[in-house]
Every structure is written in C-alpha cells, then in structure tokens.
C-alpha cells in the first residue's frame, strides 16, 4: 500500500488537480514540476533529482532567501523532471515542507488545529512575551503577514486555526476564501491541492513578539514624554 501522503497526492492528481501552491505538476512518463507561471516557457533549466528541490526552493528570483516556503515568491525558470510518485512526493516535501502530511491528515479527518492564543501561550524564552499581543494587533498582523497576495512576505496557505478558543477568525482583514481549504490561494482559480495551515508558524510567532515589543517601546516613549 502507498504511504498516506503519496496516496493523498495520487488521489488529488487523479481528480485533475493541476498542482500545489505555485507549482504546476504535469504527468509525463513520470512527473514534471515547474512554476505555474512558466507553463508556456520552453527555455527552462532542467533538473532531475528530487533533492534539487532544496536549492530551487531556497532563494527567490532576486536571490533573496525564502525563510517561508509557502510565501508566493517561488523562483521561475526551471523544470524538475521526476521518475515516479515517491520522487514527486520527496520533491514536494522539499518545496512545501510539511504540507502533504497536513493534507493527508485533513483528508483522513485527523488534522487537529491549534488556536493562535494556544500557540503563543505555549512559548518560552524570548518568545514568551508574544502572548501579550492584543486581539486588535493580531487582526492587523495576520492580515498583513499571512495574506496570499501583497503580504510581507505573504503566504499561500489556507488558515485553519482560530484566534482563540472562541473560534474567532484571527483576522477580519483577510477574505473569507483565505480560511476555506480547497481555494486556489494564487487567485488563478484553478483546481490545485491546498497548502493547509493547522497552526501558526514560528515566523508569525516571531512577528507577534515584535509587535508586542514595538507597542511596549511606544508606550514607554509616550510615558516618558508625558512625564516631562
């Protein structure tokens, strides 16, 4: 029997899914992967090992590091030819780490999600202060940081976690589509596998800490100016 992630991948492809995130998957003798915006290009540099995905995913077109692999800044200009389904799975695990297991768990109705407040309350060390972020600041931060297009850096995941135990959406600044699993977050409106987000990433936790720090620095400055 196929491993669960490969089974999920195979089922999605059989259902006509064109790709995942910014990746186009084409069935050849094996599979070929490229940027969805490179579909019509014939001048692509050819790679053949699934492990090449590590390098292809590392930097954007301007050679800047991509700390968030689901950010909408996948580099262009390459095609990755893969022999079979296990190779495709390995490459996708490197392009979009952790997303296939999350998708497979979601399909099996076993994907537990964690509210943002629970993630923040769990932090220790330098990130402990992130839990002090207000609901209003969360609304602004998630709306800015996680948006699918035009974010800083933005992210193509579908958010499945709530703000807290009340089940509230973390940001009302994002379209409802951002929270609905099968929607193509690139806004091309195609049938693709979703990049599911079951829990806030460390980058968002780090940003929450920054928001709290900036806010407390501002309060201190205001207090100081007020006392003069």
């Amino acid at each position: 029997m196929l491993p669960r992630a490969e089974r999920a991948l195979s089922d999605w492809l059989a259902s006509g899914a064109r790709g995942i995130g910014q990746l186009l998957i084409v069935k050849t003798g094996g599979f070929s992967l490229r940027h969805r915006e490179d579909e019509a290009r014939a001048d692509l540099q050819v790679f053949r090992s699934p492990n090449d995905a590590t390098e292809l995913a590392r930097l954007d077109d301007a050679e800047n590091y991509r700390p968030l692999k689901t950010a909408p800044n996948l580099r262009h200009g390459w095609v990755l030819e893969l022999a079979d389904l296990p190779a495709l799975r390995l490459a996708l695990d490197l392009f979009y780490p952790g997303r296939l297991p999350a998708l497979a768990a979601w399909e099996a109705n076993q994907l537990a999600t964690t509210p943002l407040r629970a993630t923040l309350d769990r932090q220790t060390g330098m990130y402990r202060s992130a839990a002090k972020i207000s609901d209003g600041e969360i609304d602004e931060l998630v709306g800015r940081f996680c948006r699918s297009r035009g974010g800083e850096p933005g992210c193509l995941r579908t958010i499945l976690w709530a703000r807290d135990m009340t089940g509230a959406r973390p940001s009302l600044r994002l379209p409802l589509d951002k929270f609905i699993a099968p929607v193509d977050q690139t806004e091309r409106g195609e049938h693709v596998m979703p990049l599911l987000c079951q829990e806030a990433c460390n980058l968002l936790v780090a940003e929450a800490r920054k928001v709290v720090k900036d806010s407390s620095n501002r309060a201190e400055r205001t207090g100081f100016e007020g006392s003069c």
């Binding site: 700390p67 692999k69 780490p97 297991p101 999350a102 497979a104 460390n202 780090a206």
Partner: peptide, 13 residues
Amino acid sequence: WKEEPSLRDALLF
C-alpha cells in the same frame, strides 16, 4: 524550530 517543516508539522509525519 525556525523553518519549515516545523516541529509541530512533524507530529503529522
């Protein structure tokens, strides 16, 4: 800890 997949993601592996 600071990249993907996260340690939390690994709970699904």
